[in-house]
């Protein structure tokens, strides 16, 4: 690894001060990232009676109460939106991985009829973004309006991920494939028994990225879905927190069924909604760090 210090030579005082300053500056950046997030977590878990004590820089809850989360869990629209988001994410990601890996395999076979044409098509799709209205009119025309499928199928193939997977498939040694062919394996066997197992780390990484994408999606849902029962969580979050529309969430919910509800703080309830919307991302984040950053760094070393 590239280091600016000579091996074995003791570092000077100036050198050490310089390094300490860098470490402090980086720690400050880390704090700027996590303090606002911890602050919302603290706010969401604080005792409703002591919410007033939570300042913008508080990172630990004042007292402890799960009332905000219980209020959310009792709200049918909110619970429904989590289910919708999970459906979109799980079905969407499964389709992503299936369609992307099948296409990547086909496009990397030299004998694919019309291969040059299909590759050109991929590049055209990558370069030209047709824009909102033409896409909207197509979705409307084929009858996908107000259907979860319009959101599930959006970005069914991310062209950049397709190309990454194609690079991966291209790196599989041809000798391996030739040997399988001599043993009588067809394309189906080669795809399922050789390519997919070898590309497992790449496919897992793409799955994580596709999954985060689906979970975070709100815009297509906002233009294609008209029925609030079909909204994913991010859209409810946008209405409640960003647009400050408390009526739509509360009007349909059993919000006042709790004794504590009278003392409920909207800021704390919003904070809880944000925390729930981040949770799945936080859960898979260690996996992302493990697969992706490792992949990038090792890829860097190999070259």
């Amino acid at each position: 690894m590239a280091r600016l210090r000579l091996k074995g030579k003791p570092s000077s005082v100036a050198d050490r001060l310089f390094r300490a300053a860098i470490a402090l500056a980086l720690l400050a950046i880390s704090l700027v990232v996590i303090v606002p997030l911890l602050n919302l977590l603290a706010l969401s878990l604080s005792d409703p009676g002591r919410v007033g004590e939570v300042t913008g820089l508080t990172v630990l809850p004042k007292g402890f109460s799960t009332v905000n989360y219980r209020v959310l869990a009792a709200n049918p629209l909110f619970v429904r939106s989590i289910i919708n988001a999970l459906i979109i994410t799980i079905v969407g990601t499964a389709i992503n991985l299936l369609v992307t890996s099948m296409a990547a395999f086909a496009l990397t076979r030299e004998r694919l009829p019309g291969r040059r044409f299909f590759m050109l098509l991929v590049i055209v799709i990558m370069v030209f973004e047709p824009g909102l209205i033409p896409e909207y009119l197509v979705i409307k025309k084929i009858g996908l309006m107000n259907s979860l499928w319009s959101v599930i199928l959006y970005k069914a193939v991310n062209v950049y991920y397709l190309i990454i997977l194609m690079r991966f498939f291209e790196e599989v040694p041809t000798s391996l494939i030739e040997a399988a062919r001599i043993d009588g394996a067809g394309y189906g066997t080669i795809f399922l028994k050789i390519m997919l197992p070898l590309a497992k780390p790449a496919i897992a990484t793409l799955g994580l990225f596709y999954g985060v994408f689906h979970w975070n999606e709100y815009f297509r849902a906002s233009i294609y879905l008209s029925d609030p029962d079909k909204y994913p969580l991010q859209l409810i979050l946008r209405q409640f927190v960003v647009l400050d529309d408390t009526a739509s969430l509360i009007g349909s919910g059993a919000l006042f069924s709790y004794d504590e509800a009278a003392r409920l703080d909207y800021g704390a309830l919003k904070a809880s909604t944000i925390i729930v919307a981040m949770l799945p991302v936080l859960i898979i984040y260690p996996l992302i760090l493990k697969y992706y950053t490792k992949g990038v760094m090792e890829g860097g070393v190999k070259e």
Binding site: L98, V99, T100, M102, A103, F105, A106, L107, R109, R111, L112, P113, F118, L121, I125, F128, P130, G131, I133, P134, E135, L137, V138, I139, I142, L153, Y154, K155, A156, V157, L162, G186, Y187, G188, F191
Partner: peptide, 27 residues
């Protein structure tokens, strides 16, 4: 054999048609 490769490509082509090519024509 090669027809099978085309079959593997079909779902992606359907997606491209709906979300990319038809909207491009719509421009």
């Amino acid at each position: 054999q090669e027809g099978f490769l085309l079959v593997l490509l079909v779902p992606a082509l359907v997606y491209f048609s709906v979300y990319h090519l038809a909207p491009m024509a719509g421009m």
